[in-house]
Amino acid sequence: MGMLAKAAAIGAFAALSLGQAASADEDARLIINGEEEMIVRAAPPAWSPLPELLSGWLFRTVETQRLQMDDFENPGFTSVDSAWETWSLPEGSAGKSCADCHGDAASMKGVRAVMPKVNAENGELWTLEMYINNCRTERMGAESWGWNSGSMVDMTALISLQSRGMPVNVAIDGAAAPFWEAGKELYYTRTGQLELSCANCHEDNYGNMIRADHLSQGQINGFPVYRLKNAKLNSIHARFKGCVRDTRAETYKEGSPEFTALELYVASRGNGLSVEAPSVRN
């Protein structure tokens, strides 16, 4: 091979590997531990503006995808293990643990798939974190956990894992309807000095590169998500906050009515995709 041909071959290889880094195999299937297949492509609900629902897993590099295909490789499982211990740890003035009322954590199966949902007792829209803290303060007599504290995010991972593989199925009608409408309004509002809405990137431009980032549909079926970028599990609202901050806007707070409504709306845009928690992204 002449020098020129060699140089051309190297160039082609570099371009090819860059392309692979940007977008993985479009037909890739997410099968965890060689046996649990996740629904990473789903038909959209009738009202959805998306032609097809796509898990964020499809937008990641092959290397990142692999980390989620084996629970021993998945760095999010350190947190799951830690929450297993917390589950049976008695705390608070009642001296009770999660296990005392709920038995095995497997009893939480299905919970994550329908979160957030309207709390029938007070008519408020509650996320998984709110239900957990309610248990802690009202039933256990324990301190509430901070939204992004390790204990909280770990527990949401353990509880969400029990629903892994089940399709997301949040209610958007009835009592949930006004919250869903409020979340939709936020989704399309262009905030901050960059005047960007969620839709600008995640509806109009998913699949496209923005500098070195491959834009996904912004689905939240994989949360809490282990991000390689900050090497920890991240809550949904923490991720929302990062996105809004990056529009050079004043963010909302974790647990605010705005982010809770937005969580419902964004979750509903993924109704039909599998719960993947804890997922791995970059």
Binding site: T189, R190, T191, G192, Q193, L194, E195, L196, N200, D204, N205, K241, V244, R245, D246, T247, R248, A249, E250, T251
Partner: peptide
């Protein structure tokens, strides 16, 4: 979608650069 690079008003929830404040 392009940001307006020479504008100072008319924003929704303008923040102090990338601080979120």
């Amino acid at each position: 979608m392009m940001p307006s690079f020479y504008k100072k008003s008319g924003y929704i929830r303008p923040g102090n650069a990338y601080t979120g404040k």
